[in-house]
Simulated scan of single mutants.
Amino acid sequence: MNNRWSRMVIVAILICIVLLGVAASTDNRLFVKREDADSSTKASQQKTPTMTKVSLMLDRYPNAAHAFIYTAIANGYFREEGIELEIKQPGEPSEGVTLVGLGVIDLTIASQPQVLIARADEIPVVSIAAIVRHPMNYLMVPKTSTIQSPKNLAHRKIGYPGDGVSVAILKTMMLSDEADPEHAVLVNVKRDLVQSIASHKVDAIIGGNINEDRIILEKRMQPVRTIEPMLYGVPEYYELVLVANETMVATNPELLQTIWGILARGHQDVIDSPKDALINVMNKQNPSFPLRMDIEAESLSILLPFMSNDDEVFGFQSKSAWSVVAEWLDETRLMRRLVNSEDAYVNLVD
């Protein structure tokens, strides 16, 4: 009896030992799994970098001039650098400059004269790169019009998008052609430049681009003649520049240099594969302003030679270009004060 009882006690003890071992082993495995899960979560968090959000307002609806931007986005260059670029479109021509000055938008595209006019109005904006280095804003009249030169604009209706730059161009052209700008009848048609001249609501338009609006009119069987402003006293200027707020330029120049480096890569891709670049633009077109591939292809062929050349790096801005344009705008008396042109731009490239 005693032997049997002893054997039972021993068996019971052995069972307890086994059970305790299993429990310990199970706890260790659970602990390892929990530890692995925590490590996986941390690794996952480390693999998801924080994206820097940057907003960019275009100068108008998406078109061939913006191919380098949309190509850089499509090719993933911004994401590679941890930047999330948000594209916005303006309601009015000068809206982008105003919003950048207020710090609501980070970047915008505008003309060089717009930057100088804004600074004269105490709006703290700076051009950080030249995009299109030659004026695209030409005076346009119907091909059958009797208007042959700026002096014929007296007492005629001229449609314009409501911007001061177009007024300065028109004023200079008429004065150069010995006509009184006060005799021209300016009509603010906002963004309806093409429609205003196609429907004969105005006799001419200023503020339309030869690389876009002129081609659209021709395709609509409303051909126009263009009159070049540079033949009538208007200096060469940068049609499009990239604009930032003074504070951003001072506090975050590295980010701006990174952004321009990305855009320069996009520009090179446009040169290498223009058809692919135009597809990127077509994919982002504004339904209110539908695009045609043939128009955008012709537009891009006009723009590319004026965006970069063998003599200057894409984006470079010259001191003389800024001083000449500042003096011209001061002569037109459209600026409230003469601004220091050297403060109006910085070069992100050499």
Rank of each mutant, 00 (worst) to 15 (best):
Y345L: 02
E298Q: 14
R265T: 11
S25Q: 13
S25L: 14
I87T: 03
I215C: 04
D272N: 14
D36M: 13
S341Y: 06
G208I: 07
L291Q: 04
S176Y: 04
A65G: 13
A250I: 04
Y70C: 00
D27V: 15
R119W: 02
K275R: 13
E122N: 15
L217P: 00
M248D: 03
R79H: 12
R214Q: 15
G96Q: 06
N280G: 00
A67N: 05
D311Y: 08
K88S: 14
V22P: 07
V325G: 02
I10Y: 08
A250R: 09
P135H: 01
V249L: 04
Y345I: 02
V11L: 13
I205S: 01
A244T: 05
I210E: 00
E312I: 10
P142A: 00
L291F: 02
R4F: 09
M282P: 08
N245R: 08
G261P: 05
D27I: 15
I205G: 01
E331C: 07
D106I: 08
V104T: 15
N252P: 12
W328V: 03
F289M: 11
W260S: 06
A43Q: 12
L231N: 14
L329S: 00
N75Y: 08
D272W: 00
W5R: 14
R220N: 10
N3E: 13
P93F: 08
P305D: 10
T52A: 14
E95A: 14
K88L: 15
L186T: 07
I216E: 12
P113L: 10
T226N: 11
V32K: 15
D180E: 03
S127A: 15
P113H: 09
V18W: 09
N211W: 07
K284M: 15
H267W: 02
P223L: 05
S323A: 13
P93R: 03
E327K: 13
V167F: 08
L231W: 12
H134M: 12
I158V: 15
R29F: 13
W260Y: 10
S176D: 09
K151N: 13
D180Y: 06
G101N: 06
V234E: 02
V9I: 12
A67R: 05
I128F: 07
L300Q: 07
I109F: 10
E178G: 05
A130C: 06
T71F: 01
H183W: 10
V185D: 11
N286P: 00
N309I: 01
P93H: 06
T108M: 05
L338F: 11
V141A: 06
S308Y: 01
R60N: 11
A168T: 07
L303D: 01
N309H: 05
A67I: 02
T71E: 10
P290I: 01
V9E: 13
P235G: 12
D272M: 06
R34C: 10
I302A: 07
M57R: 05
I169Q: 01
A74F: 04
N347E: 03
V194H: 02
D269C: 03
L19F: 12
A204L: 05
A65I: 09
T146A: 14
M8G: 09
S323T: 12
S149Q: 09
E236R: 15
S176Q: 06
P90F: 04
L304N: 04
L102D: 09
Y77W: 11
D203R: 02
E236W: 10
